[in-house]
């Protein structure tokens, strides 16, 4: 049982014109096995929340705390956060030229697990994860995210989620740019990871359609850098119907 505890989180980005405040006091608690959906309009700070938890250097924490099972996440380096059990599936996964998917996955698994996975079982593990996500075996010889279609990038992210077995995963608009079939395949991967590892999920999305596949226990509405309303799955239905208008400019 793990818990990610976010309290009063305030985050700014430094620009040439000075700091710009993006997150204005975010409170959120995610435990193993729970699925939380964060929904909100563009520019509300949802992705900033995701990247701040992962430790992206662009963001400066100006207040609040983030702990994972009591350990101070904000004091950890990016790689330490991942090894502590956090995972961020990115909206725009980065190309790494010259580094093959297979080399990348094995390097990451070695880092996360603390020892190199046994080659024979590892090959089987990767093959299984790829088959489940309907990926061509030739995929592993390609360079990380280089020339991947939008759908391939997202499948690659979820494959990592399944192989690296984090405690808490943040999915940043994993549904964006996916057609119906790809959305189903990717969502099934998330559900598998949840069931296999009692994963806690923070699902950041703009739209409700992914929630048909990944059922949230809690829905949080995000606007202007903070959570402005919380509820159960029924809140998503309300957003589907009425949109974010009532939360914007409030």
């Amino acid at each position: 049982m793990s818990t990610l505890n976010i309290r009063g989180l305030e985050v700014s980005v430094i620009t040439e014109k000075g700091p710009i405040e993006i997150l204005r006091g975010v409170d959120l608690t995610i435990s193993s096995g729970e699925t939380h959906a964060i929904m909100g309009p563009n520019g509300s700070g949802k992705s900033t929340l995701a990247y701040s938890i992962a430790g992206h250097p662009k963001y400066t924490i100006t207040g609040g705390s983030v702990t994972l099972d009591g350990a101070n996440v904000l004091e950890m380096t990016v790689d330490e956060r991942a090894r502590a059990g956090l995972f961020l599936a990115m909206q725009y996964p980065v190309e790494v030229p010259g580094v093959s998917v297979s080399n990348f996955l094995r390097t990451a698994a070695t880092a996360i697990r603390g020892e190199a996975p046994k080659l024979r079982t590892w090959v089987g593990e990767v093959k299984e994860a790829m088959t489940a996500l309907n990926m061509d075996p030739a995929f592993s010889e390609r360079n990380v995210n280089e020339g991947f279609s939008g759908g391939e990038k997202k499948r690659h992210e979820i494959m990592q989620l399944e192989l690296l077995k984090p405690k808490i995963a943040i999915l940043d608009e994993t549904d964006s740019g996916l057609d119906v079939d790809a959305l189903r395949i990717v969502s099934e991967g998330v559900v598998r990871a949840k069931e296999a590892n009692n994963l806690g999920v923070l699902l950041i999305t703009h739209y409700t359609r992914i929630l048909r596949y990944i059922k949230p226990d809690f829905v949080h509405v995000f606007a202007n850098g903070r959570i402005v309303e919380e509820g159960g799955p029924e809140l998503a239905d309300k957003l589907e119907e009425k949109g974010y208008a009532e939360y914007v400019g409030a």
């Binding site: 992962a54 430790g55 992206h56 250097p57 380096t77 990016v78 790689d79 956060r81 991942a82 090894r83 995972f87 961020l88 990115m90 996964p93 980065v94 790494v96 580094v99 080399n103 990348f104 390097t107 990451a108 880092a111 996360i112 990380v144 990592q160 690296l164």
Partner: peptide
């Protein structure tokens, strides 16, 4: 950042 967010330490990320 991408490599480190998968647990890979800085030195090794640079090497990769």
């Amino acid at each position: 950042f991408y490599l480190m967010s998968r647990g890979v330490p800085m030195d090794e990320a640079r090497r990769l």
